[in-house]
Amino acid sequence: MDEKQELLSLLSTDAREDVDDIARQLGTDPETVEGLLDELESEGTVRGYQAVIDWDNTDSQRVAAFVELNVELDRETGYKEIADRIAKFPAVESLRLVSGDYDFAIEVTGESMQAVSQFVSEQIAPIPEITQTVTHFIMETYKEAGIDFGDRDDDDRLSVSP
């Protein structure tokens, strides 16, 4: 694996490491890591650093839904043009073009079910190319970004062993 790939793989498991510790783990120096990070950011490979949050563990009333969108394209409008318009809404957390029964899969968040419904019906559905929306409210999150939200394993190994 080249250094960039190794750095990406490390960041994808823990983006909170500071540059010094990343350098130690990759067997390189902090300046090299800084340089690689700058490069990855400026070329648009690393788009951000976020915590994986179990919102159900907070007082937040946050509601999220997956919404399936069907669209009808015409000569002037392709998927890209429609995606650009949808992506601009801050309430849209993710937006993907998918294969199968519908075209776009988006995740929408809001302060209540009503807020999410309203957003979909007032902001998304009226977009002329969109022919259908199906909203699935998320009831429970078990795993996110590769992290299992189940009971965390206790270390039951012997504290000292051969």
Partner: peptide, 25 residues
């Protein structure tokens, strides 16, 4: 085994970080 003694010492406390384990975490 000489390891036994350190196992017992480590078991006496609950704030110990162990770098004495011979198996994967």
């Amino acid at each position: 085994s000489g390891i036994r003694k350190f196992f017992e010492l480590a078991e006496e406390r609950d704030d110990v970080i162990s770098l004495g384990v011979g198996e994967p975490d």
